[in-house]
Every structure is written in C-alpha cells, then in structure tokens.
C-alpha cells in the first residue's frame, strides 16, 4: 500500500528485504548505503544483537528524485532472519509495497530458503497481500563463495525451488562484493513505480 500525497506532491514507498537468516539482507542495504552515501544523505539505522544479527530491523530512507513533479521517497527495510522473530517480520511487512527476497545460494541453506519464502507468503496473507500480486524480486546471493569451493545451488535449482510458480525477476549476485545489488534494487523500485504509474499521471 503506497502513499501519495497530492498536496505535498510526495510519494512514499516501502520496500522490504526478506529472506532467511544470514542470507545477506542487511549487507545489501549496507552496500547501498555506503556506495550512495553522498546521495542518500541520511543515516542507516540498524539494531543488532550481540551476535551482529538484526534484532528488529534495518531502515534506510532514500529520496531518489522527482517524477512528474512528485518527490519519490523510498523506505528500505530489512527483517530479522532468525526463525524466532516471525512476529517482527510480520510487523515489518505491514504496509509493504515491494519485496526483495534474498535467498542464499549455499546448498546447505536450501531448506531455509524454501521455508522462509513460504513463511513470507503466509505473513503477507495476514496483511491481505498476495505474494503472486505484490511487486517482488528474487536475489540469489553469495555467488562469490563459488571461488572458495563452497557447494552452491545452481540457478536452475534456485529457480525450481523458489520461482517456478512466482515467475518473478531474479538476480544472481553477491551483496558482499556488490554484484547485482544495485540492479536488484532498481528493479524492485521500478516494478513498484510502474504499479504507481497511473496515480502519478
């Protein structure tokens, strides 16, 4: 549910990075924050446990400019990946306009990816949203681990596991090195803005 304020000529869009624990959601935001620091002009807020895991959420507001005179304000959030924080994940999903699902390419994380995606669908339903209708992009993260000999899933396997029904755009990348991080974000913002298009014209 995006917000458009015709009087203030402003659009607010909420994008949530969702995915299994330690999949790289915060690293995605961290990369964006570092790389475009001068343009973003605001601070990223992140609340951690002592194990450096996201406890509540990360938040990064980004004003990307104007379309048809409307200021486009994007709010980027991550959810905590740990299994026990599902109540928090549900809460962060409230009012979401677009989702980046960050999946982990490591073979041993296969089940976690599938479970997390299924849970995301269920959590969306609690907010009367449908994973098949909301703007959604998949990111297959940690491709850089290939060079270290760590067993990874193939893109075909990832697609079969996660995207055979959803059929949404996906990117293979590495949040750590920045591969596909920007492309992923651009895609989800673009998809969200397309569905906003009529309102802006």
């Amino acid at each position: 549910m995006g917000f458009i304020n015709v009087k203030k000529k402003e659009v607010q869009i909420k994008i949530v990075y969702y995915g299994p624990g330690r999949g790289g959601k915060t690293t995605n935001l961290d990369y964006i924050n570092k790389k475009y620091k001068q343009r973003i002009k605001t601070e990223m807020v992140s609340i951690k446990t002592h194990g450096d895991r996201t406890l509540f959420f990360d938040f990064l507001p980004v004003d990307i400019g104007k379309i048809h005179g409307f200021d486009i304000k994007i709010q980027l959030y991550t959810v905590p990946g740990q299994v026990k924080y599902n109540a928090t994940r549900k809460l962060v999903l409230k009012g979401v306009d677009g989702i980046v699902f960050v999946a982990d390419l490591q073979r041993e994380r296969r089940d976690s990816n599938i479970k997390s995606l299924e849970q995301m669908k269920e959590n969306l339903l609690t907010h009367n949203k449908d994973a098949f209708k909301i703007p959604l992009v998949l990111q297959y993260n940690k491709i850089d681990l290939k060079d270290q000999g760590i067993p990874l899933l193939s893109v075909e396997e990832m697609e079969q596991d996660l995207n055979s029904e959803l059929k949404v755009p996906y990117f293979v990348g590495s949040a750590l090195t920045g591969d596909s991080v920007v492309e992923t974000l651009k895609k989800i913002i673009s998809m969200t803005l397309i569905s906003f298009r009529k309102e802006l014209q």
Binding site: F3, Q12, P135, L136, F196
Partner: peptide, 12 residues
C-alpha cells in the same frame, strides 16, 4: 504520509 495522503493499492 499526512492527512492529505491517499493509499494506493499496488499490484504487480
């Protein structure tokens, strides 16, 4: 979003 804000249901 303020009192003048309108909610927009976004669909893919």
């Amino acid at each position: 979003a303020g009192p003048d804000a309108k909610e927009v249901v976004l669909a893919r």
